[in-house]
């Protein structure tokens, strides 16, 4: 028996309407905005908005600050991505060992940072990284490391941002990897052991292939997430010093909601979308060819 139109409307209608208003319509509007010079004046008088076609995109591509933000975002991604994967995998292995004690406690603690507000936690981080009264400089002084200006030194600022990003990202990915490890049948290892495979061979020929689906999922999600880097630099450094931690989304926010250059910011958003789309596509392709 088919459902009546009224029932379908009742159950799906509200969700569909909200998706249309706040996702589908905005995408279309975004594309339209990116070819206009919509700015602060447009709020008062919509007719002052002109269609400028690809002018915004041309300007964005000639904007040194935009390229700086692209470079920074890729730099942050290149730093954070392998670090996150490495530590998440490492903790997953250690907490999946039969012989490890207090598994639940460790798992819980390592997961904890990811549920907390980045904004609130970033405040503590910047206090820990404070050059004069910070815990880190005090701790490092025991090893003879001179006082560092972690957040106002262009050499260190991005490392500080990435450290916070990774600290927050390890927990959930570790859980995904643990779930993945538990999905690999025990018999495979037993058979390999009988055949005389050593621990490394077992790792490369059983564990890694077994983790492949999860690894792909984690990679794609991390890629998407890290290209959208915003809260950490916003709070820790505000994009500074000398724009060394200015990320694409932070630049988009500044252009859009500080300078109210909505047309320009929409072009930046569209380029970001293309980057995320491209990265996801490449990762999917790479993994498929490896199969």
């Amino acid at each position: 028996m088919r459902n009546t139109l009224w029932e379908v409307f009742l159950f799906v209608g509200p969700s569909l309407l909200l998706l249309l208003i706040f996702t589908v319509l905005p995408v279309i509007t975004s594309l339209f905005l990116s070819i206009t010079d919509f700015n602060a004046y447009s709020f008062m008088d919509w007719s002052r908005t002109n269609i400028v076609w690809f002018q915004n995109f041309i300007e964005v591509l000639h904007d040194d600050l935009f390229w700086k933000s692209v470079f920074n975002t890729i730099y942050a991604f290149l730093l954070a991505y392998p670090t996150t994967i490495f530590f998440s995998l490492l903790f997953a292995f250690l907490l999946n060992r039969k012989e490890t004690y207090f598994k639940n406690f460790f798992r819980l603690l390592i997961y904890l940072p990811s549920v907390t507000s980045t904004i609130a936690v970033a405040v503590v981080w910047s206090w820990i990284l404070n050059p004069k009264y910070g815990l880190l400089n005090w701790f490092l002084s025991f090893f003879g490391v001179p006082r560092q200006e972690w957040l106002s030194d262009t050499k260190w600022a991005m490392f500080a941002v990435v450290a916070l990003v990774v600290w927050k990202a390890i927990g959930p990915n570790m859980l995904l990897f643990i779930a993945g490890l538990q999905g690999i049948p025990e018999e495979l290892y037993e058979a390999a052991e009988i055949d005389g495979a050593n621990r490394w061979q077992q790792f490369f020929y059983i564990t890694l292939p077994g983790l492949k689906p999860i690894l792909l999922f984690v990679s794609v999600m991390l890629g998407i997430g890290y290209l959208q880097l915003f809260e950490e630099p916003y709070m820790l450094t505000g994009g500074g010093p000398l724009n060394s931690t200015l990320s694409i989304v932070l630049y988009l926010y500044q252009k859009g909601f500080r300078a109210f250059e909505f047309g320009y910011a929409s072009s930046v958003a569209f380029i970001l979308f293309l980057m995320i789309f491209g990265l996801t596509y490449i990762q999917m392709k790479l993994r498929i060819y490896q199969e």
């Binding site: 208003i21 706040f22 996702t23 319509l25 905005p26 995408v27 509007t29 975004s30 905005l33 998407i224 959208q228 989304v249 988009l252 859009g256 909601f257 909505f262 910011a265 929409s266 958003a269 569209f270 970001l272 979308f273 995320i276 789309f277 996801t280």
Partner: peptide, 15 residues
């Protein structure tokens, strides 16, 4: 789901 939040940010604000 493929659409990143940042792309809809400005238009959603306008809405």
């Amino acid at each position: 789901m493929m659409i990143p939040g940042q792309m809809t940010l400005i238009p959603a604000y306008l809405v």
